[in-house]
Write a protein that binds this DNA or RNA. Sequence first.
DNA 1: CGCTTTTGACCAGCGC
DNA 2: GCGCTGGTCAAAAGCG
Length: 111
Amino acid sequence: MDREAGNRVQLPEDGYEWKKYGQKFIKNIDKFRSYFKCQKAGCNAKKRAEWSETEPGDLRVVYEGVHNHGSSQDQSGSSQSGASNTSANQYNLLNQVFGDNPPSDYRRSGD
DNA sequence: CGCTTTTGACCAGCGC
DNA sequence: GCGCTGGTCAAAAGCG
């Protein structure tokens, strides 16, 4: 399960269940992009991971959507088991988790 | 047996 | 109008 077109990228576990449903090479950024979907019941959260083909350290993970169920890891023990708790979905595109080497020059190419 | 992963193809939108 | 890219789906195979 760890062979991405010749890349050995290890995605940061968030405690959720993801199923890879596609992978493509984005020429716009010259990087690989993998698409994951949450396999939880009633959960339509999606995860997108992209990393440079030659620099595995440029791993970048982007969470799309929110989870309507708690996580198997970050379970504070409260505010969960309820879809009406926005606090449980702190992944609202706010938790862009990076790999172990966050590219300081990730910002934009030109600015 | 169940589950997961992998690849190809298709579609849509946009730019010029 | 055409070409191109991005995104998703489907099917198949392998493993424990």
